[in-house]
Amino acid sequence: MAEPENTYPIDPENAGELARLMQQDRLLTEGMGGLLPEPGITLPERGRVLDLACGPGGWALELAFQYPKAEVIGIDISRQVIEYARAQAWSRGLENAHFEVMNVMEPLAFEDGSFDLINARLMCAFMLPGAWPKLLAECYRLLKPGGIVRLTETEGPWCSSLATEQYWGLIYEAFKRAGQSFSPNGRRMGISPVLPRLVRQAGFEEVRVRSSIIEWSMGTEAHYAVFKDYLLGFELIQPFLVKMGMATKEELQRLYQQAVAEMQQDDFCALWPLITVWGHKPPAADEDEPETREEEAQPRAEVEG
């Protein structure tokens, strides 16, 4: 069987990337205020949850632990991370957590109306702009009436380090060149401002937006965790940046070393902004065709602080 096409900019089978994603899972959950901190998001006691692009499965495993009667299924394109997640579920005795190899940019092998909640975090790292409407249509199909889709994305950090900002600038431009960005100019990822509209266009109602900001300035609790995330990520993404013609390996290494030094200075200041967008599939009695729903209602996304 042919391996599914992978648009992830870092080799997903790299052991260093697995370690980075394991730590990032915990960092995101804690920094966002918990597993499901958004108002109005509830999970039935015996609900079914799908975690898209689950990586090593940290969020899914914690949810399965907190909701022992629920069924939590994580899917990811990488066999290595799925095998790791399965091993973690087995070692922790979480019989309600299951993990499968699937590509979220292709039709998913589940029946209509299978889930109460579909979750995903930071898919902008690999999603093609044209794949988002198709994936959200799949989410609409897979959710039960009244079910919730919950998506968390980022535009990258804000910080006082010039070299770190320059490195991120190369990453944003590389994504633009690769056709994996919504940004009109390649200066950011561009997913955050368009995501609420994409969710509405897919037919979801009561679409809301909640912001989370992780401060990782020097001396803060989150500094080392985020610094380590970037320390590994900046190094592992270098082959992608070279491939996209952003700089030579030697130029990237010099900029990398300067960024690492600046992120450890006593006066370093930084924030990591994230947004979570969620919406409900209409109740069965109110369902209309998804493509006409936005034209009829034109609801506004409500922003939570």
Results as ranks from 00 to 15, higher is better:
56 P>I: 00
94 L>K: 05
210 R>E: 03
128 L>T: 11
29 T>V: 15
141 R>W: 01
158 W>T: 02
81 V>H: 03
229 D>T: 04
16 G>T: 02
143 L>H: 00
206 E>R: 13
21 L>F: 04
136 L>F: 13
73 I>F: 09
232 L>V: 10
131 A>H: 14
135 L>N: 00
42 T>W: 03
217 S>G: 12
98 H>Q: 13
5 E>L: 12
42 T>I: 04
119 N>S: 03
148 I>K: 01
242 V>Y: 14
126 F>Q: 01
233 G>T: 04
113 G>A: 15
17 E>Q: 11
120 A>W: 04
185 N>R: 05
134 K>L: 15
260 V>G: 11
298 Q>T: 06
26 R>L: 15
271 L>C: 06
17 E>N: 03
21 L>G: 01
272 W>H: 08
247 A>K: 14
210 R>V: 10
15 A>L: 07
238 Q>E: 08
213 I>W: 07
284 A>F: 11
285 A>G: 13
54 C>N: 00
43 L>F: 04
121 R>F: 09
83 E>F: 03
175 F>W: 09
108 L>P: 12
113 G>V: 10
143 L>V: 00
45 E>L: 12
77 I>W: 07
194 V>N: 05
277 V>N: 04
105 M>E: 15
57 G>Q: 02
151 L>N: 00
78 S>N: 04
211 S>Q: 11
260 V>D: 02
89 A>I: 09
78 S>R: 03
58 G>P: 13
262 E>Y: 05
282 P>I: 04
84 Y>C: 09
180 Q>P: 12
250 E>V: 05
269 C>Y: 05
295 E>P: 00
297 A>S: 08
228 K>R: 14
166 Q>E: 15
12 P>S: 08
